[in-house]
Design a protein around this nucleic acid. Sequence first.
DNA 1: GTTATGACTCCAG
DNA 2: ACTGGAGCCATAA
Length: 89
Amino acid sequence: MDLVAKVRTIVVAIPKGHVAAYGEIGRELGISPREAGRAVALLDEDVPWWRVVYADGTPATCHDGEARALLEAEGVVFRGGRVDMLTIR
DNA sequence: GTTATGACTCCAG
DNA sequence: ACTGGAGCCATAA
C-alpha cells in the first residue's frame, strides 16, 4: 500500500463542502505534513486535491486561484480568501 | 554521502 | 493580520 494510495483514500473521503488540512492527513497516517503534501501532489487527477488546504485554511499554492473556484463550486465557504475552518469543524 | 528543494506547520517579531 | 525564520521528512541530483 503506497502512501499515495492511503492519502488518495482519505482525500476522496472528504465530503462535499468540506476540506482537510495537510497536517490533518499527515497525523491521520502518522506522517509529517511534508509527507502529506508530497503524497497529495502525486495523487491522481481523480482525487479532489483542491479540498486539501493548509492548516489555516489557505488553498494550495499550485494552480493558484483554481482551487478557490473549485472549492466554491463544491460549496465550501470562503472567508476573506481563506476557507472557513469553522465550517470544516 | 551530501546538498538542495518542496502542494507543510509552528513560533516569534 | 502579515512576514520571516526554523523545524521536519522524503525525493532528486
